[in-house]
Structures are given as C-alpha cells and as structure tokens.
Write a protein that binds this DNA or RNA. Structure first.
Lengths: 116, 116
DNA sequence: GCCCGTTATATCCGGCGGTATATTACGGGC
DNA sequence: GCCCGTAATATACCGCCGGATATAACGGGC
C-alpha cells in the first residue's frame, strides 16, 4: 500500500504535543465505522491491536467526548462503534483536508516540480 | 518552549515516505541562513549536529537541487549557506503554510471547540 | 607549518515506539 | 455453565531514531 504520493501533503491537528487526529487516525476511524471492531480494523490496516487501541485512546482523551465507544463481551465478543460525535469529528477533519488540498492545489503543483 | 498551540495544525510535504520539508526543517533553514553554520544552528535549536546534518542531507536528497551548500575548512572553519534554490523552497513552503492557515481559519476555530 | 572551527563520517549507547505474546474481563448464544 | 471473540491490560523484546563522542578532512589566517 502506497502511503504517500510524491509531493503530497500531510495534515495533522495537534493537541499540545499529541496528534489529536491525522491521516492515520482518520483512516482507523473509517475502518472501525465499517467493521465495528478495533481488532479487525487493526488487522486490515496491518498494525497491532495494541497500537490501534492506543490511537483510539489518544483520540478519546484529546476530544471533549469519546469518538469511539467500545464494549467487551456480548454478541460477537463485543465491538466498537464510532459515536455521532466521532462522525462529526471525522467529517470536519475530512472537510479540512479537502480545503487544504484545494487551497494548495496551485502551489503544490509548482512545489512538486522542485522535488527530485 | 511550547511547540504547538492547542488545536494548531502541522503541514508536511512528503517525498515518498520521507519528509521533504516541514516546520522543523523550515526553521533549520532559516537558522542556517542567519548563522551561516549548521553546527551553530544545531546549538541554537537544541539539537545535535548529527541530527541537523541529517535533516539538511534529507532535504538535499529530496529536492532537485541542493538547498544548502556547505564547505569544510577556510575562514572560520567553513560554513554552510542556503542556496538561491533553497530560499525559493523556503518561500514557497511558507506561502503554503500561510495558505493553509487562511483556508483553515474558520474550520479550525470550530474544530478546536471539539477538543478538550 | 601549525592552529582553529567547521563539515563530514563512524561508533556506541539509551530511550522510545512498536510488535508479539500472554492473560484477564466481559457478556450474549447455545 | 461453557464457548467464543472481542476489549483491555501487562510484559518482554526488538528496531530505530537521536544524542554523545571520537576522528578525520578541509582550508584560510597567522
């Protein structure tokens, strides 16, 4: 999986020194929304469950409300879901990304010409 | 030194998996332009010479032309200068940063309200 | 020709981020 | 009450990034 195209930009929203949300956490949120599971999302993204859980934990700590609600036990052994608040966070982050892409479109094209 | 304000954004321009330029490398370039020395810049930024040199090396490898030209020996023991090409890179990166800040200004304000 | 401060490179080492693994808790289905 | 798959947590281990240190090359000043 190609992570970053040549000359692409990466946007992160910082909360102090921690990354409240960035490309990776946003993708993780989308996986959790689709699979309803942190561990399944971790497998699909090729990362350890521990890392996925830490990313979720960081997000839940950075934002005013949890972006992911999880439950252990129950049908299917439990699961995790993206809260309505989490969907809003994701929507706004994606909107920010689109804005950045549009705003940088002319600049970035020229800037990429400076790269090897 | 507070590195990132609450809810601030961070922009990086990727070259494959490497960071061609970001906030840290941009600041390093500005220091080199002022001091004419990699080691002096490293001291001022509180990092090792090794790290500063590696950052410069990464930039020089990512871009089509060197952004820093250096010389060992000579008056003052040598030194480093930011090339005209490097100044252009820095100018354009700063312009991109400003564009991002302006484009995200309304979004970011609302997004910050979602943070703790 | 020696001194000096810098660039450039190599080596060693500690901390940290990450994986891998194991263990426990949980709760619905059967 | 057992099974199952997940969440949640702890532990051990490893690789890598970065700092600290040492050394060599360099070239102008004196």
């Amino acid at each position: 999986m190609r992570r970053h195209a040549r000359g692409a930009t990466k946007l992160r929203v910082m909360f102090g020194t921690e990354i409240a949300i960035g490309p990776g956490k946003a993708e993780l949120l989308r996986h959790i929304a689709r699979t309803g599971s942190i561990s399944a999302s971790a497998r699909r993204m090729g990362m350890s469950y521990r890392r996925a859980w830490l990313l979720v934990d960081t997000m839940n700590r950075c934002f005013r409300e949890p972006v992911v609600a999880s439950a252990a036990g129950g049908s299917g052994g439990g699961g995790a879901r993206v809260t309505a608040f989490g969907r809003k966070v994701l929507e706004r982050f994606d909107a920010m990304r689109r804005r950045v892409d549009r705003a940088l479109d002319p600049e970035l094209e020229r800037f990429a010409g400076l790269l090897r």
